[in-house]
């Protein structure tokens, strides 16, 4: 059944709806005026962003530190978890699935609030470390599921074949399972990276003084009012997103 005119119309309207605000933001990042009335083309806001916006770059650095470290840990633990879940024969797999699905279902704000209360309760100072812990926590289930979905493409007999041919557990792990799940592992890492860089709500609760991340910085700037500098940051982040989406297209099937 070919789609009718109606669904084509809706699709184009939706795509316009998606991109008009984004294009407007991009366009005005090149405006030569502070107010959102088009005056003329200029790179002045980028110049300001690159030369006199120390706090933004500090926040960006924080975001990168957290994103890379949290994604690395989440990917390693998630990969091992997926392998254990796929490989191992043990009771209680259902419980592991439940605690993996819950963080995906429960609203972010609950995760943020509960972690904040937890950190205060155990008297842990809010810092980049608490943000790191929070980011590993919400990325973990994604990492597990992505790697698991990759592993599911293969029948269990592939592991048995490795054993049968004389492999020990370590060899089966490093010579067979890790290589075959590598696209999944990579996808898990990039997914965690994206989630981490994007997260605002959870970070908002577990961040302490001096541990502002880029989304927190953008949030406080937005609260202050619209500013062409935000447009410039947004444009750069969008370019980053597009580059990353194109790069990740190959691995998307392990994500959805």
């Amino acid at each position: 059944m070919n789609p009718g005119k109606f669904s084509r119309l809706i699709t184009f309207l939706i795509l316009i709806f998606f991109y008009i605000p984004i294009f407007v933001v991009i366009m005005f990042s090149f405006n030569a005026s502070k107010s959102p009335v088009w005056v003329g083309f200029s790179f002045m806001w980028y110049k300001e962003l690159f030369t006199s916006s120390y706090t933004i770059w500090k926040a960006f650095l924080n975001s990168i530190i957290v994103a890379i470290s949290a994604s690395f840990v989440a990917t390693v633990l998630g990969t091992l978890g997926a392998i254990g879940l796929y490989w191992g024969k043990f009771k209680g797999k259902d419980y592991i699935w439940i605690i993996s699905y819950l963080p995906l279902i429960i609203p972010d704000i609950i995760i943020g609030v509960s972690l904040l209360i937890f950190f205060v309760f155990i008297k842990m100072k809010l810092s980049l470390l608490t943000i790191f812990i929070a980011h590993v926590t919400f990325s973990l289930p994604y990492a597990l599921m992505i790697v698991f979905s990759r592993l599911q493409d293969f029948e269990y007999s592939i592991i048995e074949a490795a054993y049968d041919l004389g492999a020990t557990e370590e060899i089966a792990l490093f010579k067979v399972i890790v290589p075959i799940s590598f696209p999944g592992i990579l996808a898990a890492f990039f997914m965690s990276l994206t989630l981490s860089i994007d997260d605002f709500v959870i970070t908002f609760f577990v961040a302490g003084p001096g541990s502002t991340t880029l989304p927190l910085k953008i949030y406080s700037m937005i609260r202050f009012g619209i500013s062409p500098t935000i447009n410039a940051i947004s444009t750069l982040m969008l370019v980053g997103t597009i580059v990353m989406s194109i790069f990740m297209r190959k691995y998307l099937r392990y994500i959805f």
């Binding site: 007999s157 592939i158 048995e160 074949a161 490795a162 054993y163 020990t168 075959i180």
Partner: peptide, 17 residues
Amino acid sequence: NKREANTIFQNYALFPH
């Protein structure tokens, strides 16, 4: 992995990588 018997699996279980 030590037994002197090797298996040809139903789906062959070749290493795809």
